[in-house]
Amino acid sequence: MSIHDEGFAPAETPEGIEVRGLVKSFGSTPVLTGVDLDVAPGTVSVMIGPSGSGKSTLLRCLNLLETPQAGRVRIGDDEIDFTAGVRRGQSASLRRHSAMVFQSHNLFPHRTALQNLMEGPVFAQGRPRREVEEEARGLLARVGLAEKADAYPDQLSGGQQQRVGIARALALRPRVLLFDEPTSALDPETVGEVLAVMRDLAAEGRTMIVVTHEVRFARDVADHVVFLDGGVIAEEGPPQQVLLDPQQERTRAFLGRILSH
């Protein structure tokens, strides 16, 4: 585990994730065909793979934006067995553990940056407004946007928007952070500022799952790299192994393609 700065440690205990036999198809198109995944608490897992390999779908299944047809997911003490069917209240309970950062940030355009952060904690979690606001201002400061609290998303640059998106996820006090290609929609010059925030979060010892094409980020920050291809995990392991010395031919081919750009 990485050494982390005191005072930056998250208030919430990071949790681990266990996925077994996850199956998801859209109509007759299979996307995930039996995925097993283990994520240890406080570690960073990076998921890479060609488009259509199912990495975003897998991430979205963990947050229940997609409902798998079979398999089970456990986060902390909450578990859903999708083969048996989802019972009432189970999804909300599992979803509580995680927060999602989207590729296209999906900030609420009619709310200021600060209001975007406060929305979930105040109106979904029912926490006291004053306490939430204080914490939200702190989070905006952490992502370097203290002075943008009252700006609307459209008044911010792409990188700033995504940093607000990360702060909004943190405001939910999640035990697991999910990132779905957080830098793919950004201008090249703003990618760095978003990755810097993510590095800080990783250094705090948070549980993070990141879908990305940023191989350097994976190499520097990940504890575990997962290579998905054709709806299954084709190879996984420490970044040195998967990225620098891949055992599978298709991993080598994929890395060769993205590194040549």
Binding site: N63, L65, R95, S104, N106, F108, P109, A124
Partner: peptide, 29 residues
Amino acid sequence: PRGQWEAAETIGYSRTMALRRVILPQAAR
């Protein structure tokens, strides 16, 4: 956009809450 529904869902909103606090205010404009 669908992403607004999804973002509302991930911060813990029910469909009704998402409609009231996220979708309808934007639809009103």
